[in-house]
């Protein structure tokens, strides 16, 4: 069971969280400017890297905040967790860099 650091509540057991998929997917500003194929790419296709992966987590049983996590998909080591800046759902917020914490294993 992972130990995930909520940027607000600190380290908590994985059971308190729900997973929100890959972070950093930028929603197209004008969906109608995209071809069907491009739109489908945005909708359905996600990276599945071996190694570093940025993903969204939701502290569902806690403060109800969505936040970003950088996790290694091989070792499961969490490199850091961070608050979000908003648009792009997954970029670390410049204003909240103080919240990005080095995670213990």
């Amino acid at each position: 069971m992972l130990l995930i650091e909520c940027p607000w509540c600190g380290p908590r057991a994985e059971t308190e969280f729900s997973y929100g998929g890959e972070a950093g997917i930028e929603r197209p500003a004008d969906p109608y400017a995209l071809s069907d194929a491009e739109w489908a790419d945005y909708l359905f296709f996600r990276r599945n890297p071996r190694g570093a992966h940025r993903e969204l987590w939701h502290h569902a049983q806690g403060c109800r905040r969505w936040f970003g996590v950088e996790r290694d998909t091989v070792s499961y080591r969490i490199e850091k967790s961070y608050r979000l800046s908003g648009a792009g759902s997954g970029r670390p917020a410049a204003a909240h860099i103080e919240a990005s914490k080095e995670k213990r294993r």
């Binding site: 969204l56 969505w66 979000l84 800046s85 908003g86």
Partner: peptide, 18 residues
Amino acid sequence: AAAVLDWMEKWLQTEWPE
């Protein structure tokens, strides 16, 4: 109930914080 609230919060917090 829970899924809809989470869905709405997700958009508010991640995409449209303004």
